[in-house]
Simulated assay, not measured.
Amino acid sequence: MEYKILLIDDDKELLKMLRSYFEFKNYIVMTTNSAIDSEIMLAQKPDIILLDINMPVMDGITYCRMIRDKVSCPIIFLTAKVEEQDKINGLLSGGDDYIMKPFSLKELEARIIAHLKREERHNNSSKFRFSNGLSIDYSTKIIQINGLTIGFTKAEYDIIEFLSTNAGQVFDKERIYEKIYGYDATGDSRGITELVRRIRRKIAVYTDQECIETAWGIGYRWRK
């Protein structure tokens, strides 16, 4: 299967290098140096998006927020920023991972492969219903409560899927982060706390039953 990669970065030389590398690896590569010019490419339904954070006109985080509800594929940020809050903002905007510039092409490809394989596993999953009226279709990534669909970002959904398929089992933030972003991810697991808070807030609109419980001092578990 040929995967489609959408590369968005204002560094034309970097785009040229990445296109050459991934086309050699038999990926279908689409590139643009402006986020606002990517609408036609999004219509081609890329399997993964590599998105630079620092771009003129529209930065990567703003763009990610704008398209996150329109695309379900993984989004990996390419960034030279190192502040913790920048990383958290990226994840909370709907990004699934990030890699610091300069980076190794082999490491970047490994991250991409990990996300693509995770997507394939998710697509092969089935539907499950919980007693509080909540249902998760793991093949389509649609979550409903009493027939009403709730919108989640990719990272939020991945947390829900991981915890719900291991209902009753407690996982600390580091384990959840590793499962969602990969064992070689270099991010901060504290972003998981913010993502869980957002998940709870969205679910609370439809039901007063809490799905994700906090095991104080340990981590989180999906309520059986």
Rank of each mutant, 00 (worst) to 15 (best):
Y21T: 04
S125M: 06
V196D: 11
D188G: 03
I136D: 01
E107W: 00
I53N: 02
D208E: 13
I113H: 09
A114M: 10
T165W: 02
I5G: 05
E119F: 03
E84Y: 14
I150R: 10
S72A: 14
Y98G: 08
T79Y: 10
D9W: 12
G168M: 04
K45P: 04
R65W: 10
P46A: 05
D37P: 02
T79E: 07
E178G: 07
N33Y: 15
L51G: 06
I145D: 13
I192S: 07
W216E: 13
I145H: 09
M1W: 02
K70N: 15
G147R: 04
T214K: 15
D9F: 06
Y138R: 10
D86W: 02
L134E: 03
R65A: 00
L18V: 05
I180C: 06
R223E: 13
S38A: 15
P102I: 00
K202G: 13
T32C: 10
M17V: 14
T31E: 15
S125H: 02
E161H: 05
D137V: 01
G217H: 09
L50Y: 03
I99G: 04
N124E: 14
T186M: 13
F128Y: 06
T153C: 11
S20M: 12
I192L: 08
E178A: 15
T140I: 12
P46F: 09
D10T: 04
S34N: 15
F24A: 06
D11Y: 13
L108A: 01
E83H: 07
Q44R: 09
T32A: 07
E13A: 07
S189L: 07
M41V: 00
R111W: 03
T153F: 10
S20F: 14
G187N: 10
F162C: 04
N132L: 03
R223D: 13
